[in-house]
Design a protein around this nucleic acid. Structure first.
Length: 288
DNA sequence: GAACAGGTGAAGT
DNA sequence: ACTTCACCTGTT
């Protein structure tokens, strides 16, 4: 394994079909666990099977077929975007083998096939500002309304989808431009964050180059962005896999970790451990 | 109606 | 450094 936790032997065999590709062999990828584990808010189950989502200004459908999985579009679309977005070059088995305590191993077994999506920085920041003290259905509703109002329409499989609006688009809104979201006290946080990004005072490329703890301090300067939202942004928006968000769900698991988490004990991929634990706690009756 | 939901920030010990 | 509370809104 290289320093990045990647290994070329993981590569999937790509079988091209008319309107999709099938990825065979390699490490398990679970659409359900990846899209339902709570890291994203815009991938929805499709009546045609699998999940449909929009990222990078394009849409896709991703579904399981036996041990394999499929992604709509061409092999070129995959190489250009989805391969990186889905984090398919990383050896999760190797990384998870370092999580040796009993509770984390149960969580890893439960979430097998989950990947940390490489979401766009602004979408992640904005989405997790909205998430604070909110429940999943309402987060999805507000994020969806934001995209419907200010995103760009794209067509996919004969249906209309909306992209996530840019920070620049939101920054130009007049006062009250977000009222229809019913986002409550989060609305001014969204507006001010959008302005900071649009006017260059928050520079995602610069944050990406910084050490995680420094980037965390920097993004926490934004109004309405505390430690938890900052850590979600770093993990899901910048791919800083050592970021370790702790929320109310994670706190439920704290008794299994001597009462408090030591993120250092999980090493450079603490964020991956976090996501397994979060998903396990949120989705199961884990206590026994 | 009260309590709560994937927090934050300010003000109080 | 730790605790408490208000903050919008929708749901139970």
């Amino acid at each position: 394994m290289s320093a990045e936790g990647e290994r070329s032997s993981l590569a999937y065999e790509i079988i091209e079909a008319k309107d999709h590709i099938r990825l065979v062999g390699g490490e398990k990828f679970s659409p359900v666990h990846t899209f339902e584990c709570g890291q994203c808010f815009r991938w929805m189950p499709s009546p045609k099977g699998g999940y449909v989502g929009v990222a990078g200004g394009r849409a896709a459908r991703i579904w399981s077929e036996g041990e394999d999985f499929c992604i709509s579009g061409s092999a070129e679309d995959y190489e250009d975007f989805w391969r990186r977005y889905l984090d398919l070059d990383r050896d999760y088995g190797e990384i998870a083998s370092a999580f040796t305590d009993d509770f984390t191993r149960r969580a890893v077994d439960y979430g097998m096939g989950l990947r940390i999506l490489r979401q766009e920085p602004w979408e992640a920041l904005c989405s997790f500002i909205i998430s604070q003290c909110n429940n999943i259905p309402r987060i999805q509703k507000i994020v969806g309304a934001l995209c419907s109002a200010y995103g760009d329409a794209i067509e996919f499989e004969g249906e209309r989808y909306m992209t996530f609006p840019s920070a620049e688009r939101i920054a130009m809104l007049p006062e009250g431009g977000l009222d229809m979201l019913r986002a409550g006290y989060r609305a001014p946080y969204i507006l001010s964050a959008a302005r900071e990004v649009a006017e260059g005072r928050v520079d995602f490329d610069a944050l990406d180059r910084m050490a995680t703890s420094d980037a965390e301090k920097a993004i926490m300067q934004l109004n309405g962005v505390g430690r938890k939202v900052a850590d979600c942004f770093l993990l899901f928006g910048l791919g800083k896999l050592d970021a370790f968000p702790v929320d109310t769900w994670m706190k439920k698991a704290a008794p299994y970790y001597k009462g408090a988490f030591d993120k250092g004990a999980f090493g450079n991929f603490a964020g991956i451990a976090q996501q397994y634990i979060f998903y396990f706690v949120r989705s199961t009756k884990f206590e026994n």
